[in-house]
Design a binder for these strands. Sequence first.
DNA 1: CGCGCAAGAGAGCGT
DNA 2: CTCTTGCGCG
Length: 860
Amino acid sequence: MSDFPDDMPFFGDPAAPRAQAGGTGAPEGIAARALKARGGAPNYLQGLNPEQRLAVETTEGPVLVLAGAGTGKTRVLTARIAHILSQGLAYPSQILAVTFTNRAAREMKERIGVLVGGAVEGMPWLGTFHSIGVKILRRHAELAGLRSDFTILDTDDVIRLIKQLIQVEGLDDKRWPARTFANMIDGWKNKGLAPSEIPEGDARAFADGRGRKLYQAYQDRLKTLNACDFGDLLCHPIRILRANPDILREYNARFKYILVDEYQDTNTAQYMWLRLLAQRPETARSPSSPAGPSPRTRGEGSSVNVDAPLSPSLRGEGKGEGQSSTINICCVGDDDQSIYGWRGAEVDNILRFDKDFPGAAVIRLERNYRSTAHILGAASHLIAHNEGRLGKTLFTDAANADDDKVHVHAAWDSEEEARAVGETIEQAQRKGHLLNNMAILVRASFQMREFEDRFVTLGLNYRVIGGPRFYERLEIRDAMAYFRVVAQPADDLAFERIVNTPKRGLGEAAIRQVHDYARARDIPMLAAATDLVATEELKPKPRSALKQVVDNFNRWHSLLDSKPHTELAEMILDESGYTAIWQNDRTAEAPGRLENLKELIRSMEEYESLRGFLEHVALVMDAEKNEDLDAVNIMTLHSAKGLEFETVFLPGWEEGLFPHQRSLDEGGRSGLEEERRLAYVGLTRAKKNLHIWFVSNRRIHGMWQSTIPSRFLEELPEAHVEVSESGNSYGGYGQSRFDRADPFQNNYSTPGWQRAQANRSEATRSNWGSRSGANVERIGYGETDSGFGAGRGSVKGRMIDGELVAKSVSDTPSAFKPGDRVFHTKFGNGNVASIDGNKLTIDFDRAGQKRVLDNFVQRV
DNA sequence: CGCGCAAGAGAGCGT
DNA sequence: CTCTTGCGCG
């Protein structure tokens, strides 16, 4: 079986196209089409600035393109591929182009198609690290102890599996949460570490020193399940390539050109993977030991020890016949946009590029085509507070006196923040702006809800990108579990999920029996079930129920290759009784769930087979968004990278949320710098209008807490920022018509408010101004931002980790007693009903019972 | 065994 | 405040 139509020519290509401009070996059609597209002059070069053009045309040798935000990075990448193709330097199938997100891969494919005119036939190696990893792994699955139809587990499956292992070990799963261990494994795999290779300290840190054993047990279980996790999609190929020089050589000969997007986000495993693939064919040789050398650990040395050292670069040597003698790798990235350190990304990879690839050409793209001078100025000034940058200076010609400065708004609480943003959006809409051109970028996804609620009330269209995902819905996961077992009968996790859905009288006892039988013999549960129903071991009722399940799966499985997969899928859902569950369900959400199941079947039509579909879901996990609908985009800052919008809203700029407390706790100074890069990413998404918000009160874990403004606000340059009245126009700060329903709100002369102000200015040492009259007047810069260079010293002093951080929970016991009469600025007067640490339950006279933090109320 | 309610824990970002 | 887990009953 071949899932990959391009497999055929893979190792049996005709002679490689000659590496000569306009070489006669060029694949027919593409070059001709590209040239034809605009009267002989390649259209893909048109409109490129000199640096961009250099980045496109420097095809030979290692190239690092440092591309600042909005400098046309994607354009360069796509033009470069178009150039390589149309110059006949390589076949499409000889180009390895790696991105981080499926979105980026899709976009590149489309844009290359436009550039070379028509569909890009066969760019089989353009994709994400993981999709290409899967492809390699399926080809050589047996070398990793898997069959080529292996399943890719998602995070949920992984956690359930680990939980089982922890219980088997007899460990307390409360004390040793599966989620924590899943994260640890992920971290190891990000570094390419097998169980035998993890640091002793790490191994000891979990489960009383049983970390290594558990990791090994996890890998063993994956093998039995014929499954792998996300990390394995990279780690398995690395091991396979290391242990099999012949295979490595084939790939090395295969890939004439390598392109990597978002290079600053590569982790150690991805780096090792690239280094292996980016070797010259003739230098690939066998590893010194079967296991391969130990991978680099953080901070050690300056290069990764891959088996075959790279031979000295022969850059500029001119193109030889047949194959180039240089490593034609082009990495594009921006150290200022490195925001995945927590996922194991090593900015070091990009900082070290010219040492890894001697003689590398480094090209800087600094001309920004996206944002106004104010936005760019604000972003540049903010990011200048980071140390250890490669240092780029973005500039733009687009200085326009009419451009708005960056707006900073204050709101009383997150509800008002959502209201005011909604107001601003509606105003813009009335002026004719499309909602599609606006985005709300949040730090944490829980912030989204408030906006969603508000927009529903307003009847304002919105879409959540990367939010609660289609494939994570209950009914979809159930249906997928059925399909997974049919496609890959060893998938126990899927089997366990649906063996008793719908209810078949197979309770915990029966399932345990199957489970134990399977574990004892190291076979999949479906196989165990098949055995068990032939014996007398089960009670009659579960036995016949289980027999029916087994028979069903066998029958469905036998139809896998003969029946069209969408029909088969419908058949499975009907015959299993799964559809009936929701048909008989009279609750409000049942019709929606049935609709989702139909949508699921519909979306399968685009794929060739059930397995192809399952793989897509495992790797992509997001449903295509409806571009036809005009809607505001809501997403996290992380998923906004690479996008741009006319108008951008950045809510929640408060200490503890942004920068996020956990980044500071776990990452210290570098954690703070990563948060700052995230802020930079957020700012640079905006083309014309940028609105930043912070609130004084935010609800966390259902409890109101007072907050202080983010330090990042103070790092914005005064010249480009304007502190605005709140987004509405209803009588000043915070008092919109929507507030009337709540008579307790917004009394700035109250003790609580005064106290909040006192806390605030103490904590930030800034002059945010008492807002007793109306609005924040101005942002103070006195000691911080006297300029890029000069500012840094004082900034450094101010930036001691954690110094300014809002504490989420107070250490000091509450000074309140039950029965105390208190005042709360939002809810009014009330009596303390009970106390739990610093959390008070208060019966308010008019607002009812609420739980609040004690530092949020005032004794009266 | 299955359902329902109560208590307890818990929300950072994602291929 | 919201979701998951655990326990007790029918």
